[in-house]
Simulated scan of single mutants.
Amino acid sequence: MATIRKRTLPSGKSVWQCDYRDGSGARRSKQFGLKKDADAFLSKARHEVGQGTHVADSQSVTVNEACKLWIERATNEGLERSTLDQYRQHSDLHIKPMLGAQKLSRLNGPAVQKFADDLAKTLSKAMVKKVLSSLSSIFAEAQRHGYSAINPVKTVKMRTNKRDVKKIEMPTKAELSAILKATPEQHKPLIWTAAFTGMRASELRGLSWDDVDLDAAVIHVKRRADKYNNISFPKSAAGTRDIPIAPSVVALLKAWKPQCPKGELNLVFPTGAGNVENHGNLLSRIFWPIQIAAGVSVKTKEVDQNGDPVMDAKYSLHALRHAAASLFIEQGMKPKRIQVLMGHSSIQMTFDTYGKLFPDEDDDASAVLAIENRLLSTS
């Protein structure tokens, strides 16, 4: 039986105490300064007990403790080092400082919404979403242990504005052509493969000759290299895919294979010693100098010894991935096919990234023209 009674504490302070039994039958109590707060809590507790979701404050844990449980589980599951580092950053830099001392049972939707709104004052919306995703996983892990009744992160809404959509940074056709022409012979296999397949840099760095079928002109994407140069599987099932390669790329790879440095991993684009190439080296030693040589560059505030402005490359290696997707779309490939080739986990991700590149207006005009012709031809 649940009751509310007024109590006078030894200190002389008067409180309203809720007495009730939780889902396991254990007696619980909670005190409030105002009767209306006690009434509201008891009504909520009764509903949660009836639903089998109630967790008493005394049985809950703090966000700090929940973060520790979450990291421990992720570690035991053998997640990549880079993923664990990201989880720790979200936890240590954003979640713990703002919510760490609070118990999960006292965090509701409005409280988490305020947390998200406060984060948005200093972080990008993309980062806020990532931190909220981590917080949601923390609550989910706590629920598995019986420390939280709900996951309030699911009620949080993030406002989106078309002006907040980040413009895709990629070379124009003229810039891409200049980059390809300026690429030295020894780097053509890498740059051509990146530009014509849309593979991620991590996938290029982890690509093995075992996964390149030059006779069938297909690359089987099965692995990737993380930022610590460890080889692992793609992060999602969609990342494992087959990508057709152009004849020019086949020819370049065939010529490159006998010259390619040998190593235990049998990599297509390794270091001189046959090991996994560092992502930073691909940029600073290969792709950035190529762009500057091609004139695909921007002025910096620095000047050289002759007083001329120092030029900087315009694009990251990821820009070649976007350029490849743009060319796929231009050739009339359907969104679902683009999703497969790019290794996106959902069609929504494809539309979120490349939606503006699909020729909607042309499709609409063609559809209207077809309707008109069909109607007029029957009249």
Rank of each mutant, 00 (worst) to 15 (best):
residue 8 T to N: 03
residue 21 R to P: 01
residue 21 R to A: 08
residue 23 G to K: 13
residue 27 R to V: 11
residue 31 Q to P: 00
residue 43 S to C: 05
residue 57 D to L: 15
residue 62 T to W: 06
residue 67 C to Q: 02
residue 72 E to G: 01
residue 84 L to M: 09
residue 89 Q to E: 12
residue 91 S to I: 15
residue 96 K to F: 04
residue 100 G to Y: 10
residue 110 P to L: 10
residue 116 A to P: 02
residue 117 D to M: 07
residue 121 K to D: 08
residue 132 L to Q: 02
residue 140 A to D: 14
residue 147 Y to L: 12
residue 148 S to M: 05
residue 151 N to Q: 04
residue 154 K to F: 00
residue 155 T to Q: 13
residue 160 T to L: 11
residue 179 I to W: 07
residue 196 F to I: 08
residue 202 S to Q: 06
residue 207 L to Y: 09
residue 214 L to W: 08
residue 214 L to G: 06
residue 219 I to D: 06
residue 220 H to G: 02
residue 220 H to F: 13
residue 224 R to G: 11
residue 225 A to C: 03
residue 243 I to H: 03
residue 246 A to Q: 11
residue 258 P to G: 10
residue 271 T to P: 03
residue 283 L to A: 14
residue 284 S to V: 10
residue 286 I to V: 15
residue 292 I to A: 02
residue 293 A to N: 11
residue 294 A to N: 00
residue 299 K to M: 11
residue 309 P to A: 02
residue 316 S to G: 13
residue 319 A to S: 15
residue 320 L to E: 03
residue 332 G to P: 01
residue 335 P to C: 04
residue 335 P to R: 04
residue 335 P to Y: 05
residue 336 K to V: 15
residue 336 K to N: 12
residue 347 I to A: 11
residue 349 M to T: 12
residue 350 T to I: 11
residue 356 K to C: 03
residue 363 D to K: 14
residue 375 L to H: 08
